[in-house]
Simulated assay, not measured.
Amino acid sequence: MVVVGGGVIGLTTAVVLAERGRRVRVWTRDPVERTTSAVAGALWWPYRIEPEALAGAWALESLAVYEELAARPAETGVRLVGGVHGGTRLEELGPWAARVPGLRAARADEYAGGGLWARLPLIDMAAHLPWLRERLLRAGGTVEDRSVTDLAEVQAAVTVNCTGLAARELVPDPAVRPVRGQLVVVENPGITTWLTSVDHTAEVSTYFFPQPGGLILGGTAEEDVWSLTPDPAAAEAIVARCAAIRPEIAGARVREHRVGLRPTRPAVRLEREVRPDGRVLVHNYGQGGAGVTVAWGCAREAAGLAEAAAS
């Protein structure tokens, strides 16, 4: 089997297949450290992903895995960290929320504006993506730096398409669209909790995540914007919004600017397609801003579709 795409969706899917005894090759246009997944702030939470019912189930499967991986944070890059989703109410969320351990209303001393407090997986992608690659290699899989211009050129009985935004051209699937996200990484002035204040209909939001490489500040959600060049004005506004909540952020030294394009779709595409030549293509893409959140749930479902086709 060939898995096309070396981001978190592709690598996790390949790991599941390889650990079930399948011979798996990952073809990735970019080294895993330079995929869109590498840019992610990577807090576990179903964000900008549909359909909600399926996404909630995939997310809960992934949550259980991340809770186990958090026992080895230095190795896996996964930690359990407390924080607040500002302005979020439990009744606004789907049934999945009732199964998130410890999710409760935030106290006034935790966030004055009200919201939900939780202790959730926060994933350091700089560590997690290489760890996934090594786990795949230990299971007998391989990773090849190889660009694909047409999925038909993959000469495998079963191909798993985890190409994210590139699926727009490769499938082709015009329903996949970019949602541009810009982040600023600053030296952490001592903040140990995360916070989000997100309006899912707005192009800007406010959040910060303490990661080993610095405090990640966000963010933007600009639909159909393809530019990967950081916007200085947007960066300044991001810092200002975060500093309005935690004033110590205002004086923090900027380490890095990041831009990523979330592969958003009206609904995740996770299904099997039989090509005219009889070969099978399993699609697993369109997770938008929640790729890390649903990675393991989607991977297991995609692996099941691929195995059924191979048997």
Rank of each mutant, 00 (worst) to 15 (best):
residue 64 A to L: 11
residue 164 G to F: 05
residue 93 L to C: 11
residue 1 M to D: 03
residue 181 G to K: 01
residue 60 L to Y: 06
residue 305 L to K: 10
residue 180 R to N: 05
residue 74 A to R: 13
residue 282 V to S: 01
residue 309 A to G: 14
residue 100 V to W: 02
residue 29 R to S: 15
residue 5 G to R: 03
residue 106 A to F: 03
residue 127 A to M: 01
residue 168 R to K: 13
residue 294 V to H: 00
residue 259 V to P: 01
residue 94 G to Y: 06
residue 81 V to M: 00
residue 145 D to R: 15
residue 111 Y to F: 15
residue 299 A to V: 06
residue 201 T to A: 15
residue 40 A to H: 09
residue 83 G to N: 06
residue 74 A to G: 11
residue 308 A to E: 15
residue 116 L to E: 06
residue 100 V to E: 03
residue 280 V to Y: 05
residue 231 D to G: 04
residue 190 G to Y: 11
residue 228 L to I: 12
residue 139 A to N: 10
residue 178 P to S: 08
residue 224 D to Q: 09
residue 71 A to T: 15
residue 32 V to S: 14
residue 209 F to G: 02
residue 249 I to L: 07
residue 131 W to C: 01
residue 56 G to D: 03
residue 2 V to M: 04
residue 172 P to Q: 08
residue 214 G to F: 08
residue 215 L to G: 04
residue 133 R to D: 01
residue 175 A to F: 04
residue 234 A to C: 13
residue 69 L to F: 13
residue 3 V to K: 00
residue 89 R to W: 13
residue 229 T to A: 12
residue 141 G to L: 07
residue 273 E to Q: 14
residue 213 G to K: 13
residue 2 V to Y: 02
residue 120 L to D: 00
residue 218 G to S: 12
residue 50 E to Q: 14
residue 214 G to P: 02
residue 162 C to S: 07
residue 147 S to N: 09
residue 9 I to S: 04
residue 197 S to C: 01
residue 302 A to P: 04
residue 235 A to C: 14
residue 79 R to L: 03
residue 260 G to T: 09
residue 123 I to G: 05
residue 74 A to W: 08
residue 139 A to K: 00
residue 134 E to C: 10
residue 186 V to F: 04
residue 34 R to K: 12
residue 213 G to F: 07
residue 80 L to Y: 08
residue 64 A to M: 08
residue 284 N to D: 10
residue 119 R to C: 13
residue 291 G to I: 05
residue 218 G to H: 05
residue 110 E to P: 12
residue 310 A to G: 04
residue 44 W to L: 11
residue 285 Y to C: 01
residue 255 R to L: 15
residue 46 P to Y: 06
residue 201 T to V: 05
residue 133 R to M: 05
residue 113 G to Q: 09
residue 104 R to G: 06
residue 81 V to K: 01
residue 239 V to D: 00
residue 307 E to I: 12
residue 288 G to C: 09
residue 114 G to E: 10
residue 77 G to P: 09
residue 232 P to A: 06
residue 51 P to R: 14
residue 193 T to M: 01
residue 72 R to M: 10
residue 168 R to H: 13
residue 145 D to M: 11
residue 287 Q to R: 05
residue 137 L to Y: 03
residue 66 Y to P: 06
residue 280 V to F: 03
residue 237 A to W: 02
residue 41 G to N: 02
residue 220 T to V: 12
residue 294 V to W: 03
residue 21 G to A: 10
residue 276 P to V: 10
residue 282 V to C: 03
residue 294 V to G: 03
residue 78 V to D: 00
residue 25 R to F: 00
residue 279 R to C: 14
residue 250 A to W: 02
residue 135 R to V: 00
residue 92 E to Y: 02
residue 143 V to D: 00
residue 13 T to Q: 06
residue 69 L to V: 10
residue 209 F to M: 07
residue 21 G to L: 09
residue 33 E to W: 08
residue 23 R to E: 15
residue 175 A to E: 15
residue 267 A to P: 00
residue 88 T to S: 05
residue 229 T to C: 10
residue 276 P to C: 10
residue 62 S to D: 05
residue 87 G to M: 09
residue 100 V to G: 00
residue 174 P to N: 06
residue 129 L to C: 04
residue 259 V to W: 00
residue 205 S to L: 15
residue 83 G to V: 04
residue 167 A to W: 03
residue 274 V to K: 13
residue 256 E to W: 08
residue 88 T to Q: 07
residue 143 V to L: 13
residue 285 Y to V: 01
residue 301 E to K: 10
